Amino acid sequence: MQKLRFGLIGFGHFGRHYARLLQNMPGVELVTIANTSVEMFAVNGKDLPDHIKKTTNTQEIFNDATIDCVVIAAPPSTHKDLIAAAIEAGKHVLVEKPMVTSMVEAKAVEKVMKKKKNKVFMVGFQYIYNDHVRYLKEHLGDLGEVKYVLGEHLYCGPFRSDIGSFMDAGIHDCAILEYLFSPGKITKVIGASSSLKKSKKDDFTAVTVTFQSGLAAHILTSWYWPEKVRKVTLVGDKGMALFNDRDETKLKWIKNSYPEWDRKKSSMFLHGMIEQPAVVPVSAQEPLLNELKHFIECVNTDSKPLTNIEFGSKVTRMMEEISGRLSKL
């Protein structure tokens, strides 16, 4: 099979990881990297081999007929136009999250995609390709009926000039919710966001979202926080699970069912594994590697990606509705 030739747009915080992985994957060749700022090549491109072309003109990637696939890891505000240009140029597209910044933009992408139905389009929601999150999906029934979820994504930078912390980090939780539960219509949103400098971009958001399915999701995000926290907690009537991406033991599982109340007692305790949660051994690869492998497989087999345009639009709609109903502190 002929190698797939890749162009990469964006060589910053995340783009450099795509470049690192694409150089070492079988069946692909990274041909060109485009970044509007030449400084990033000096910062992140010291080890790039000479045969990879470096340019500040993204049009060079679109004009190169030998390039099959384009990875977009540029600022979110540029995604819509870059996606459209890549699709119109006949490229398969993998775009880093968020797919776009609004449903208006999502509709525009959908319109472009209808013209090029033979091209693969995928959104890079890396947590959907995390092997521990996949394990949660496969064993979700063991928790019984999941009543509430807590997503915590807190960190100290980087800060974005075009989106706030909720769009940057909360989108992970919304993608996980859609992947695990397909929770449907939002019925209630209670929460607020705040900015230290009173700008339009939030530095901190705390929100509770209730869905028609009965699921309640509590989401906490900040990009100005003293420690890095990446946790998702699931609580069901037959057990609980904790995914902690920052812990060496990434997945813990508590199988105690919620107790039946004895009216004669003033308090009740869970017994068994509550004090020592069961550690779940999961054979895991780097999520971004899994993501790229899935994209490449979809291109080679003409298959629909797990996180396709429909999935991306659902997450965009969820994010937009929640954001629009937040109070501002």
Results as ranks from 00 to 15, higher is better:
residue 263 R to Q: 03
residue 254 I to W: 03
residue 221 T to A: 06
residue 136 L to Q: 04
residue 26 P to W: 07
residue 310 E to W: 07
residue 155 Y to F: 10
residue 254 I to D: 07
residue 315 V to M: 07
residue 327 S to G: 10
residue 124 G to Y: 00
residue 145 E to F: 05
residue 238 K to V: 02
residue 122 M to S: 14
residue 161 S to I: 06
residue 103 M to Q: 09
residue 141 G to I: 09
residue 248 E to G: 10
residue 115 K to R: 11
residue 197 K to H: 14
residue 17 H to V: 08
residue 119 K to N: 11
residue 294 H to W: 00
residue 283 S to N: 10
residue 216 A to Q: 15
residue 211 F to D: 03
residue 106 A to S: 13
residue 59 Q to Y: 05
residue 224 Y to F: 09
residue 135 Y to Q: 07
residue 82 L to K: 02
residue 229 V to T: 12
residue 20 R to H: 15
residue 219 I to G: 00
residue 269 F to E: 13
residue 229 V to A: 05
residue 244 N to M: 13
residue 218 H to E: 14
residue 83 I to E: 13
residue 270 L to K: 03
residue 48 L to A: 09
residue 244 N to K: 11
residue 12 G to L: 02
residue 318 M to L: 15
residue 143 L to N: 00
residue 51 H to C: 09
residue 149 V to D: 08
residue 77 S to K: 15
residue 218 H to C: 13
residue 181 F to D: 04
residue 275 E to D: 15
residue 310 E to A: 15
residue 152 E to W: 06
residue 35 N to C: 04
residue 197 K to T: 13
residue 42 A to E: 11
residue 279 V to M: 11
residue 63 N to T: 12
residue 102 S to H: 11
residue 137 K to D: 06
residue 204 F to H: 04
residue 16 R to G: 01
residue 132 H to A: 00
residue 250 K to M: 14
residue 147 K to M: 11
residue 249 T to A: 10
residue 55 T to W: 04
residue 300 N to A: 12
residue 287 P to G: 08
residue 267 S to H: 11
